[in-house]
Design a protein around this nucleic acid. Structure first.
Lengths: 419, 419
DNA sequence: CATGTTAGTTTGAGGCTCGCACAAACATAG
DNA sequence: CTATGTTTGTGCGAGCCTCAAACTAACATG
């Protein structure tokens, strides 16, 4: 029956670098060659990824999609069934012309969950996420006014502890979305504005040591992207970008079918790209960063200048509401805001051409109206190559998107084989 | 002796998509799985790539670098030796401690060359390039004032014909650097400013049909990058960017050990990213593109305003010469020019963080002085992550860089297995 | 009930890398 | 000159993986 012997480490890469004890970067050989074992692991990952993207699917269908033999899929899938990672669903009656009914495969309902964590300057939020994207066992801890290093670590540990206690099976890992700069190789925090006590924190190593689970960090915008890739509008896409707007600006890229991370996890710091040389002074001390014209700070100042009611409380949602109520000044400001956001997206499109954008953060509150306005401006600002259209989507609401993204970091690491 | 049977298609991918007759995009399955044959092809490519990057190297050394068994390298390399793609060099005397002398492997001196082509609005230039980066059999054809479609195609064919006639062995393929927009998937030209007769030209398919060789196109900046990757400062790097400045601005990216191409080969159109919202009108009709402040056009206008001699003839080389001769106005303009170039590079660094930049085009004439000025400005404009330093290099002179790059396109395609 | 169609499994063959053992070619110490 | 150690490169069998072909199971249709 079953297994050809390749099932011992299901859901694990051939050489899982997160198994290293210390937090140092994995000593992965530079341009290593491929071995049969890696092929097995990589193909298993691709099959699971395809299953994820397609929903419940039969072996035959998976084989057709991947362009491989049915027997290959059977060989990959059988150990996963034996291990209860996957289950066979009810037979789907054959369509016209007859034929044996297909047995769709899907992740077991009681498959191992993922622990997602959102770490912000003033609080930590943890939860469990199922492979189908359901969130449960949510816990929040605030750090209190002192925000000392100890208090933060205690709060993180407490929240994680309570969330993990709710898991019926051991989670696949812990994914952390950090509201600050992260060194993804070292799985440590570089710096968090407003919470300097976190600077240099070796969080990945600490979580692994304490809870015995693999832990992965990334900064907030990249987590949003990863969440979209696994649980949202980016599912199955080969190229897309996530753009976060709010008090700050950030972004992340999915390029050529894989998450893009620069050296040490750099890249995507869109907020401090220049769109207005010698423009307004930015919080970073430079002039003319995109952040100076496409954040809530700009919006509030302009709302004040335009005489809009309660300018200090303005955001995309309220602005759109005013505009739709017929407030001309609000409509005009809405358009300028959309234009300013579009400028950075247009630059991104010219630079790496993801062609598809998922908007997160404050603009989500602006709904379809704001999205359409941004899209129109981007299309006007990008020279036409006559090849493909630009697509725009709205992401999930803020906390939910971040938690799903944090969980997605674990999936990316487990299924995204280092080829 | 020899071959384990994997040598029939040396230097060819498992499924060479350039073998398709028509110019349609290759119907490569979306997320295909890996097979043994692909492993062999990919590993062969990686070994050759490593050899390229390291220079003459013994099997044992290659095995150590790749972290694989010596027998594996032998198995990969033996068919290549049988086919005269590689040759064994003279034994290298063993160092201290004795041991059998190593036999370094290197590409055969009479290995198949590559045909490189540089296609500009007014002329075509072809040549042969050896695997060691030597250029020969250069031919140039001008299109004449009419620049009709027929004249252009005749000129291309004539130059190619003469260059190919000089090849002792059949070239591996034809690589074309195009001074315009290219659809790399379809291997066709989208548009060339100043030469609208080229628009829509299916050049890749035409060359393959006429000369029976695989042909690959890309736009000029990406060819420069590829040339750097194989024959220049980008050799062996995992991340770097090429930036071209001159009458126009362009760029290309090498990310995570592979050439980045967006959908249909988009990406890298840096010249029309916005750095000055509502700034000066650009040739594209928009306002504030990077091109409006970092091209020779800007430099000439500013030189005129600054009262520099012969402003219409100014370029980086002359500007640096003036500055070094003590012309204060030239020194001040040089610094502003460097700053303007640096703005776009800083944006690129913030977006994808290549960390390493190779400068091409006009700025090369400015030499170390201009390079240092640009580097200083970029370092000032990019927030410090405390992780890694930025590196800057000057590329080769203009035509040489482009021809090497065109040839490199063929290497990239043959050695860069689609994993 | 015979025939056609599709899903999934069994079996053997072929490719690839790996570990082990072995021959070849050096250096060094005695 | 001989014995020993070291490094390079080469057979050989084992293990893993995919593939093709043949086979069974489960449905439709006439």
């Amino acid at each position: 029956m079953s297994g050809r012997g390749n099932g011992e480490g299901v859901f694990e890469a051939a050489a899982p670098d997160w198994s290293f004890e210390d937090g140092e970067g994995a000593p992965r050989p530079q341009a290593s060659l491929l071995s049969s074992a890696m092929v097995g692991s990589a193909n298993r990952g691709r099959v699971l990824q395809a299953l994820f993207d397609l929903g419940p699917t039969s072996r035959a269908e998976l084989a057709r999609r991947a362009g491989v033999n049915r027997t290959t899929i059977s060989g990959i899938v059988q150990p996963l069934l034996d291990q209860q990672v996957l289950v066979e669903g009810e037979p789907i009656p054959s369509s016209e012309g007859g034929g044996k009914p297909a047995r769709p495969l899907w992740f077991a309902p009681d498959a191992r969950p993922i622990c997602g964590m959102l770490l912000m300057p003033d609080s930590v939020r943890t939860c469990l996420v199922t492979l189908e994207g359901r969130i449960s066992a949510e816990h929040v801890e605030a750090f209190g006014p002192s925000r000392g290093s100890d208090a933060i670590e205690r709060a993180i540990a407490a929240a994680t502890e309570r969330t993990l206690a709710a898991a019926h099976r051991e989670p696949l890992g812990i994914g952390v979305a950090v509201g600050g700069m992260v060194d993804t190789d070292r799985r440590s925090i570089i710096a968090v504005n407003l919470a300097p006590a976190m600077n240099g924190l070796q969080l990945g190593a600490a979580l692994t040591r304490r809870f015995g689970l693999p832990a992965f960090l990334d900064h907030h915008p990249r987590a949003l992207l990863v969440g979209d890739r696994w649980f949202g509008k980016g599912r199955g896409a080969r190229h897309f970008a996530a753009v976060y707007t709010g008090e700050v600006l950030g972004g992340a890229l999915y390029l050529g079918g894989r998450l893009y991370r620069g050296p040490s996890g750099a890249g995507g710091e869109l907020g401090h790209t220049f769109v207005q040389v010698d423009g307004a002074v930015c919080s970073c001390g430079r002039r003319g960063c995109w952040e100076t014209i496409a954040t809530l700070g700009w919006l509030r100042r302009e709302a004040q200048a335009a005489g809009i009611a309660e300018p200090e409380r303005i955001d995309s949602a309220r602005l759109v509401a005013f505009a739709e109520a017929g407030d001309a000044a609000a409509g005009e400001l809405l358009d300028r805001y959309a234009r300013n956001v579009a400028v950075g997206i247009a630059n991104l499109e010219q630079t790496v051409a993801p062609n598809s954008y998922i908007l997160h953060g404050d603009v989500v509150g602006g709904g379809e109206r704001l999205k359409a306005a941004i899209a129109a401006h981007v299309r006007r600002l990008v020279p036409d190559r006559g090849t493909g259209e630009l697509a725009f989507h709205l992401g999930e609401t803020e906390d939910r998107a971040a938690l799903l993204g944090a969980a997605g970091l674990v999936l990316s690491e487990l299924l995204q084989f280092p080829l």
